[in-house]
């Protein structure tokens, strides 16, 4: 599974990883993460709560995102940070395709933007920061031209002037 890769550069695209969302995976992931909420193993209970079927829990998603990164960067890779946001649920019978693009490289540490999409849309979006000891690129180079400038926070009224509708982002969002 794991492949050592050459120097990581901003813009590098990770090979996609397809995950078949089986009932077994949803349940195994929930139990392995000690999450016994019924919506992750009991289809009838899930339906009663408005979901068409059981769905993957967030801890499993987190684990799969971590695996996707360490599969690519190899067994020496150390995860520093994983930040994910959930969207469309992963129901049994679906397929999630994880994709990733390197957003930033500093020395031996890279930040990868990850998206996991299923037939309903994006199940997960997030960023992972990973260090591969000794992997620092020849000269430390950051290609600033490729990076999207981080949008600095501006006031929430930006989106719409109504206080009810300004809503938008909770604090501390990555």
């Amino acid at each position: 599974m794991t492949t050592e890769v050459g120097p990581t550069r901003v813009g590098d695209v990770l090979p996609p990883l397809e995950i078949e969302i089986t009932r077994t995976l949803v349940v195994a992931g929930a139990i392995a993460s000690r999450d016994y909420q019924d919506v992750h193993h009991d289809a009838e209970a899930a339906r009663q709560k408005g979901s068409p079927d059981i769905f993957m829990n967030i801890l499993t998603t987190n684990g799969l995102v971590g695996r996707y990164i360490t599969d690519h960067f190899g067994p020496r890779a150390v995860l520093r940070r994983v930040a994910i946001r959930l969207g469309a649920p992963n129901h049994p019978g679906d397929t999630m395709v994880l994709t990733g693009v390197v957003e930033d490289v500093r020395g031996d540490t890279a930040t990868v933007r990850v998206i996991g999409a299923n037939s309903l849309g994006k199940h997960v979006t997030g960023t992972v920061t990973v260090t591969v000891p000794g992997s620092g690129p020849e000269p430390v180079q950051r290609t600033t031209t490729d990076t999207t400038p981080e949008a600095t926070a501006i006031t929430r009224e930006a989106i719409a002037p109504s206080p009810e509708a300004t809503a938008a982002l909770p604090e501390g969002r990555s």
């Binding site: 599974m1 995950i19 995976l25 392995a32 684990g63 799969l64 067994p75």
Partner: peptide, 9 residues
């Protein structure tokens, strides 16, 4: 096993 993660670490 659940995650399909075979990382030797």
């Amino acid at each position: 096993e659940a995650m399909g993660d075979t990382n030797p670490a």
